[in-house]
Design a protein around this nucleic acid. Sequence first.
DNA 1: CGCCGACTGTCGGCAAGCCGACACAAAATT
DNA 2: AATTTTGTGTCGGCTTGCCGACAGTCGGCG
Lengths: 253, 253
Amino acid sequence: MELPRILPGDAGLDSAFAGNRLLRTLSAEDRAMLEPHVELAALEGGETVLAVGEMTRRTLFPFDGLMVSMRRVLTGGRSVEVAAIGREGAVGGIISCGAAPAFTQAVVQLPGSAAIIPMTVLEDAKQASPHIKNLFCRYSDALLAQVMQSVACNAFHPIEARAARWLLDAQDRAASDRLELTQESLAGLLGVQRTTVNAVARVLQEQGLIAYRRGAIQVLDREGLRRVSCDCYEAVERHFQEVLGEDGRGIAD
Amino acid sequence: MELPRILPGDAGLDSAFAGNRLLRTLSAEDRAMLEPHVELAALEGGETVLAVGEMTRRTLFPFDGLMVSMRRVLTGGRSVEVAAIGREGAVGGIISCGAAPAFTQAVVQLPGSAAIIPMTVLEDAKQASPHIKNLFCRYSDALLAQVMQSVACNAFHPIEARAARWLLDAQDRAASDRLELTQESLAGLLGVQRTTVNAVARVLQEQGLIAYRRGAIQVLDREGLRRVSCDCYEAVERHFQEVLGEDGRGIAD
DNA sequence: CGCCGACTGTCGGCAAGCCGACACAAAATT
DNA sequence: AATTTTGTGTCGGCTTGCCGACAGTCGGCG
């Protein structure tokens, strides 16, 4: 995978360390340790960040609207999103510590920027900083919880609710309220037929919750979406808060 | 949670360190480091090993037929199994490093034994032994993969295939080919109606793949089950092999 | 023995969402 | 401006699995 670079100036670094929920919690010393090894990248929608089977030698910390979608593709070509990661988290070797090949593919769903750090650097940082180590452990738990919730969500909740949840999740991470994606790709993420997505989109639009045109969906009424969405949205957010807290310190740091 | 103890004699310890796929890979020195802090427990079906919200202060390494089921319960009382863990893995704080409360409940599904080790001890061991640290990282990745596969599996595969997969998974871990569970509880694990499970069970029995009586299912024909099961079974096992290998050393230890 | 609670078998109506098909519209390409 | 590509709208038939209901059965226990 080749990633386009953006200017690695201090402005970029500052917004990375301020814009990502994990990086934001780092002390000056922690930050100083990582900074020399950070690479910044601007990513466009559709780019593959990590291919199945590829070794996870680095980790991306999204900020600035970037949302990366982790997809599991099955034999037969059908695929679902198993997790979406934005400025609240990290993608790559953060769980496996770089010791395992990717099980899912990671694709840029909403464009934005990321701070990219080699796993070797991160592993050293974990050794040196108790906070970093603890932070990554807690984030791993939060990510696992997110995926676990999706298992339950897929099993029980109707697509209308799941679609609404997805839109809320996406908009949380997006830089704008306009999400550039087709109904077709949304269908692929939710693991349902395109025609089903179309039906749901129509209903949500009639209710004034969203507006869409060719290749883009706009969120008009977050509160309304929240009502039709399943409570998986809240459940995951609650666990995030509990584990990582708003300040990212969480429990017993 | 209170766990009944079994005699912590050397015989028990030996079978624990030989019977669990993770513990088995430890060197004599690694084992010596943990041994003084290991508690052995015999667990009965239905016991709650970890309640939602409880801090994960220790980790269980199942052996000897024990299978623990991680369940996510939704508002409304419906629940699904998000992961099943047997002698190939570990349950508890292994991902969160003990830094987060449990998001799912963990219930004993098939009776057996476990080696229980406090997270504090495990964390120290990770510091001291590169192999242990690497092993736990790789297992974390494998567990996450398992859950991710379930998301896709629930989204696409018909229950007949999923049920067959569950039976294979369970029998891999069980001490015998007789699984003591009711159709009702299997329905709860798969996240479907009991009547649906009943229909599936009847079909599988007619095909001679299983036999069941009140409260127990017996696997008769593994190969046959494999044919009707979805390939999620193989997909997860393959990733396990790739990451942990048969000897648990996996990639670049 | 006889009761009772838990588990299983079965049915019929019903809704969600699959799936293929096709027409249309908007953008991109030439 | 003409053409192609890509995305959207919609329909009808069909299957899976939900859901409530109820009857049958097994086994333990008083």
